[in-house]
C-alpha cells in the first residue's frame, strides 16, 4: 500500500513551508554553513540535522533543562532557541566537551559520583554545570543546588550531581 500523494498533489495548491536561510554556526569547534528553516530550534538542528543526539529533548518548552547547551559560553535551553537567531555563534554540546580524547572533569566526576541513572538528563546537567562553573557564582552546595535547579533529573540523582560538581570545581581549581 504505497501512497503516491506527493506525486499527484497539484503544486499550485500546496502550502509552502518557510524558505531556508543561510546560517553559519561554529559547533564544537567546527564551522558549519547551514541552510535552516526559521522554525527549526537549535535543539532539532543538533539532533535531527547534524546527528548530534547527545543533546536531549525532554519537554521542548524550557521546563526541564535536558536540552542545555553552551552558546557563546553561556548555558541556554536549545529547545527555545531558534537556530537562525544564533547565526555566527559558537555552540558547545556534550559531544564537544572532551579534549584530546580525555573526559572533561565534570564528565569524569559524574561517573565517579554516579550522578545519573538513566543518563537522559545527563548531557544537559553536564553542560549546565559547565556553564555554572564559567559563571563563577556558585560557591556553596546551596548555591549549586539553586543554580542547577533548571535541570530536572527524574531518577533523583541530585545529591550525587552536587557532589560531582563540587569535585570538578576542586579539580579545576575553583572554590567549593
Amino acid at each position: 500500500m504505497v501512497r503516491t500523494i506527493e506525486a499527484t498533489r497539484p503544486i499550485s495548491e500546496s502550502i509552502p513551508t518557510p524558505p531556508k536561510i543561510k546560517v553559519s554556526l561554529k559547533i564544537n569547534g567546527d564551522l558549519k554553513q547551514l541552510q535552516i528553516a526559521p522554525w527549526t530550534s537549535l535543539l532539532d538542528l543538533l539532533r535531527d540535522t547534524l546527528d548530534l543526539t547527545g543533546t536531549k529533548k525532554g519537554c521542548d518548552h524550557g521546563q526541564c533543562g535536558a536540552c542545555t547547551v553552551l552558546v557563546d559560553g553561556r548555558r541556554v535551553n536549545s529547545c527555545l532557541t531558534l537556530a537562525v537567531m544564533k547565526d555566527g555563534s559558537e555552540v558547545t554540546t556534550i559531544e564537544g566537551l572532551m579534549a584530546d580524547g580525555k573526559l572533561h572533569a565534570l564528565q569524569q566526576a559524574f561517573i565517579d559520583h554516579d550522578a545519573f541513572q538513566c543518563g537522559y538528563c545527563t548531557p544537559g546537567q553536564i553542560c549546565s554545570a559547565a556553564g555554572l562553573l564559567a559563571e563563577g557564582k556558585a560557591h556553596t552546595a546551596e548555591e549549586i543546588r539553586e543554580l542547577m535547579s533548571g535541570n530536572i533529573c527524574r531518577c533523583g540523582a541530585y545529591p550525587n550531581i552536587v557532589a560531582a560538581i563540587q569535585q570538578a570545581m576542586s579539580a579545576m581549581g575553583g572554590n567549593s
Partner: peptide, 27 residues
C-alpha cells in the same frame, strides 16, 4: 563499581529510541 555504560552516557554517545537514523527517514 562505576557504571560500565557511564562513559557512553556522559559523552552523549548512548543512543535512545529517537536517536537512530535511517536513509529517507520520515517524521
Amino acid at each position: 563499581t562505576s557504571r560500565i555504560d557511564g562513559h557512553a552516557k556522559v559523552t552523549g554517545a548512548a543512543k535512545y529510541a529517537a536517536e537512530f537514523n535511517a536513509p529517507g527517514l520520515a517524521h
